[in-house]
Amino acid sequence: MFKHRQQSLAFLIFFSILLCSFLGSFLIGSYDLSLKDLLHILWRKISGLPNNWNEAAETVIFEVRMPRIFAAMGIGAALSIAGTSYQSMFRNPMVSPDLLGASAGAGFGAALGFLFNFDMPEIQIMAFIMGMAAVLTTYLICSFINPHRESTVALILTGIIVSTLFQAFISIIKYTADPDSRLPDIIFWLMGGLANVTYSDLHFFLIMFCLGSVPLFMMRWRLNALMFGTEEALSLGVNAASLQMIVIICATILTASSVAIAGIIGWIGLIIPHLTRLIVGADNKTVLISSCLLGASFLLLADDAARSLISSEIPISIITSIIGAPFFILMLYNFKGRLL
């Protein structure tokens, strides 16, 4: 409503970036595809016309590249939304979505699944459940040691403890896993990757994405109140405890489901919200949507790099960190006046 035009312009630019990365990502890979063919095939698919002049191209688009592209966008968006919400709630721009143990828990669940030789869907469900369980553990321990929850510091510390604990469990599993078969699987999975994402994974993820992101989107302006601390939120008529609870549940669903289908992907949930705020300011009315669009574009481009830079697949966490770190430093330098 204030600076309405600027806000619309920002959304338009972010959306264009996403659309370009979306189309561009179809063209990257060992099978050569022209933009004209791509648009032609996509248009025929959307309009329901039969397409039988190039089956190979169609297979590459819809079976090989499409699920991966959607997964990258979805996970990028999910982690950015979770990160933005957590940074608002904890009033700390250095917080990331794995703060309360969601990633470590999900990693442990998946590692356990690999150890017992489960199938992929079972491993994903294990990961999701353990991610949720880890955050629940954090929450319960915290309400036990700090029942009145005067500040969120106790929650952060408990989250660090629980994360460390689950990291240790992962290490135990790595130590005991068969180094010829199980161990490489676990290690590669933990480094994150979108190579094996299928449409059925996407169905599961889409449901979780909606469950986690819709409430946060609807209450995004309200999240601002938490950024001024619990007491000020209360004085503004916001029931801080229940809003915090909603944020934790939603962010955990988003993070755990992301880790469940793609392993642990670092950096996105930390830098994208931060980057977005440097561009559009702190108001979550704008930040949440912008970070969602930027996060989707960022992970999509990172995944393009992961699958095309060298002949074999690069784990995506390596890419996000290598692109992310210098990019972040540049942003901090350019916007130093508006920092902290």
Binding site: F2, N92, N224, A225, G229, L236, G281, A282, D283, R338
Partner: peptide
């Protein structure tokens, strides 16, 4: 008054008084 680590504009801060 305490320091805040997020950059809100004055308008954005003041309009939060409409929350209740």
């Amino acid at each position: 008054v305490t320091c805040h680590s997020f950059s809100f504009s004055i308008e954005e801060v003041v309009i939060m008084g409409r929350l209740p």
